[in-house]
Design a protein around this nucleic acid. Sequence first.
DNA 1: CTCGACTCCTGCTGGC
DNA 2: TGCCAGCAGGAGTCGA
Length: 293
Amino acid sequence: MPELPEVETVRRGLAPTMAGATIAGVRLARPDLRFPFPSRFAERLVGARIDALDRRGKYLLAALSTGETLVMHLGMTGRFTIATSTPDRALEASRPGEFHFATPGAPAHDHVAFDLSRDDAAATVVFNDPRRFGFMDLAPTNALDAATHFAGMGPEPLGPDFTAAWLDARLAGRRTPIKAALLDQRVVAGVGNIYACEALFRAGVSPRRLARSTTGARAERLVASVRGVLLDAVAAGGSSLRDFAGADGALGYFQHRFDVYDRTGAPCRRCGGPIARLVQSGRSTFYCGRCQR
DNA sequence: CTCGACTCCTGCTGGC
DNA sequence: TGCCAGCAGGAGTCGA
């Protein structure tokens, strides 16, 4: 589900529980998600304190006291929930190397459980992911930018490095449609299908326009639009398409403010014309043929 | 190098 | 009502 606003919403929901807590146990229901868990995954986590919970693009990052960072990606359907539990129950199930977390009666697709302790309180953070496009990894904190997931990743769209000049340089000569370029995490981190569509609408830029022609004033508008739509969505707690919810269970409500996404045939909020749908790179694009050039 | 098609996986929806 | 094709918030890989 998650693009930057949803991941940021999840981060904010998990941080009060995870940051400062110690990992008392890790339970896995299977040896892999999209990729295998890294070697000795549980052993490398148990006993570590989580110093901070950060985000980079669509990744959640738990910086650990061990010098490693737990890297988590939610894929399309990844979800975290927080449950409070007693320490006894949390520790009882922690046996490294065994995949016995999927107990009868447990919700389907609960794949990972982190048993956390802080002072006298205990909590369990559970990762659920039906499609298993999500994954987890461990990488050295002092070389995180060089880790495979982040090498070559573009700037944070809400940070100071995402500028029209950067976009100009990054898109120079590229013949791919601007929509596809916005989905390229090397161009800008964290933008996915929804917010690419929404940002292009706000900027008045056609999703079909070649990336290399999105320069100058158009690039300025696009940078401002990407920032604006992401900020608005973060403020709204993200978008809840099916049942995306933050870790606290609260639903985001930005989906009610989509201008184009999933609004095929509905009137454009600017000109009244019908919103159109097309497929680019196998993914749906929604746009207004009159307002976007 | 750059690009688009294909792939992974499960679940829901809409049309017959 | 039931069935099934199509589609879904991501991104790595492959071949042209």
